[in-house]
Design a protein around this nucleic acid. Structure first.
Lengths: 215, 215
DNA sequence: TCGCATATTTAGTTGCGTCTAATTTATGTT
DNA sequence: AACATAAATTAGACGCAACTAAATATGCGA
């Protein structure tokens, strides 16, 4: 049985490994702690057989560690789905609460929640929800920023979960499922001119377009 | 903000005060800790203005302490209701999970859960659920053991939440809402002969009958 | 009212998870 | 290849919440 701190570290490692390496500093930043604290936890989790860690050499997940991490992701995303679809939370309000809920210890609860929600495949941010067996479908998202001028697309996910970003998208009617078309690209700063499903034309900065994901 | 340990102690004090005094030992037993640990927590909670505590003289709740304790009871009972009514848990399976869920920090979550459940007045064990404002309707339950021979009644709540007891009641179709009639009382051990709603006649020990509650 | 059993509190220790400060390792520049 | 800088680790300390053991208060029975 893992403690909350252990679960948090495990999840951070898993998340960071998706984008490359999980450096001690990056983990610390994600968890709002210090690198020295992270080192100690990495040692402990290695002790417990969840990580492969060698001082100064970096860290990877063991099979067991990956399973536990994916189970946490599953819980997090199921709870987010519950909060948005059943309780009426906004997609920009659920992260912190789900961060707490994912630590509830009860496999029966997760499975019943999954049943209750009808075995959803994606959470409110478009991220895939791992199955009961731990199977996580790898979905290939493409950034809106990478589309050619003239291309049409449907928003499938977001690459940034900050409250401000999500609220901005909601306000612009650019939530998951929103349809749009790239009208032009500013050669100077890479910003896009985009036509939305409801006919408006808006400007999106390159940074924003990088975080709007298309299937 | 209270830590989990603080919340647990606060709730234990609240619960025990309902039946009289909250002795240090009784609190420790409820929380599976030692009296010495409890003493320290009582001091801390007094420091925080939630308890009135004087060494060797006992403890009571302050107004603020009572509010927080009732808020915890509210959360616990709403979650139990959710688990049973929406997720299909048995009423004998929800206590431990609700014990974890009640510590989730988000007033918005509680209120939305309450809305989602349709503002239930009673939890799956028949206990009243405090309102958003903290109002807890005092319901006067009477033990089945106290009924006169010949009396008819409907099970309204249970005075014992142990898994074994609840399972026994489920098996005998004596859940909340079950109708029954007292056919006779054994003068020797106080056990009751009871006719159930579905026509069976069963024997209930005095201890059991004390924990089946009637409105 | 005294003495003793019991309840409670205090004192001192432990494990966990964090911190800061000091040290060590890795790396990239010249 | 040597060294400066950045990254990571180790060492030592702290707060929290638990523990055990020792001390102290309460209150009941003789």
């Amino acid at each position: 049985m893992l403690t909350r701190a252990e679960e948090d570290h495990l999840k951070a490692v898993h998340r960071l490994l998706e984008d490359g390496i999980a450096s001690t500093n990056a983990i610390a930043e994600r968890l709002n702690t210090k690198a020295s604290s992270v080192t100690v936890m990495l040692q402990k989790l290695t002790e417990k057989g969840l990580l492969n860690y060698q001082p100064y050499k970096g860290v990877t997940l063991t099979r067991k560690g990956r399973e536990q991490a994916v189970a946490l992701v599953r819980k997090h995303r199921l709870w987010e789905t519950f909060l948005v679809e059943r309780l009426g939370f906004g997609w920009d309000e659920v992260h912190e609460v789900a961060e707490q809920l994912e630590h509830i210890q009860s496999s029966k609860l997760v499975d019943k929640l999954d049943d209750f929600l009808g075995h959803p495949s994606f959470d409110p941010h478009g991220d895939p929800i791992p199955g009961r067996n731990g199977a996580l479908k790898v979905v290939h998202f493409k950034a809106l920023a990478a589309l050619a001028v003239g291309a049409k697309a449907t928003v499938a996910a977001v690459g940034e979960h900050s409250r401000d970003f999500l609220r901005f998208l909601s306000e612009q009617e650019l939530g998951i499922g929103a349809k749009l078309q790239v009208l032009g690209r500013n050669a100077f700063d890479g910003s896009l001119s985009v036509k939305t499903g409801d006919g408006r034309t808006i400007q999106l900065s390159h940074a924003t377009a990088e975080h709007i994901l298309i299937r």
